[in-house]
């Protein structure tokens, strides 16, 4: 049965887009929260915490995301932990994104002059206040372009969720392409949707950067 690429097919793609957006949000929220802990552990005074964070980053940066999703979904299933697909994917993306974001933010924290920490210490500010009020606001500004760059990667990376049965945007595109035999058209549309999703982020990031630069001048 041959269909043509029409409104129903476009609607199907948008259904996939819904999952792409949702997975991206989950991955970024989970990856951001855990990644912050990873960055703090990686820059902690405790050598044990630092080593744990180094190991964590090495493992999740050094193995393919596809394999991580596989292990979380099927691996946990094998040992009797049955997670719904969305939860497994959320965990997989959180692990992966937290390693990358943690490392990006670690670098930004370490890029700050030592004097910032010393001045805060000399004023009697504790670790919590030092991080919240002095170090992180500056570090996250430094890290902002890399963070948004990673977020864009992440949005596109959610296509890997197809491996555990998710019909997100790229998988939806594949299905529509198979039924319409119009791969160029279909994947052209899919690509355009990804672009519409990602490009405003890059624009927004550039605007934020300019605003921060102006504020500090």
């Amino acid at each position: 049965m041959n269909q043509t690429f029409g409104l129903p097919e476009f609607g199907f793609l948008l259904g996939g887009l819904k999952w792409t957006v949702l997975l991206s949000l989950l991955a970024f929220a989970g990856g951001g929260a855990v990644g912050m802990l990873v960055a703090l552990a990686r820059t902690a005074e405790s050598a044990l915490l630092r080593r744990l964070a180094i190991g964590y980053i090495a493992v999740f940066q050094g193995t393919p995301l596809l394999m991580q999703l596989f292990v979380v979904y099927y691996g946990l299933g094998l040992v009797g932990i049955q997670l719904p697909a969305w939860a497994a994917v959320a965990i997989g993306f959180t692990l992966n994104a937290s390693a990358f974001l943690g490392d990006i933010w670690r670098g930004a924290i370490q890029a700050l002059p030592r004097g910032q920490t010393e001045a805060a210490q000399a004023l009697g500010l504790h670790y919590r206040a030092r991080m919240r009020d002095i170090i992180l606001p500056q570090a996250l500004r430094i890290a902002q372009p890399a963070t948004v760059g990673y977020l864009v990667q992440l949005i596109k990376g959610t296509s890997l969720a197809a491996i555990v049965g998710f019909i997100e945007l790229a998988r939806a595109g594949q299905i529509v392409s198979n039924t319409t035999f119009e791969p160029i058209l279909v994947f052209g549309v899919v690509g355009a949707i990804y672009f519409v999703l990602c490009w405003p982020l890059s624009l927004y990031s550039a605007r934020l950067e300019a605003r921060f630069a102006a504020a500090m001048r």
């Binding site: 002059p113 004097g115 910032q116 010393e118 001045a119 805060a120 000399a122 004023l123 002095i134 606001p137 500056q138 500004r141 504020a215 500090m216």
Partner: peptide, 14 residues
């Protein structure tokens, strides 16, 4: 109880 002033000021730029 002890204040410190540094060679490189170390004000918080943000």
């Amino acid at each position: 109880e002890v204040g410190m002033v540094f060679q490189s000021f170390n004000l918080f730029p943000h």
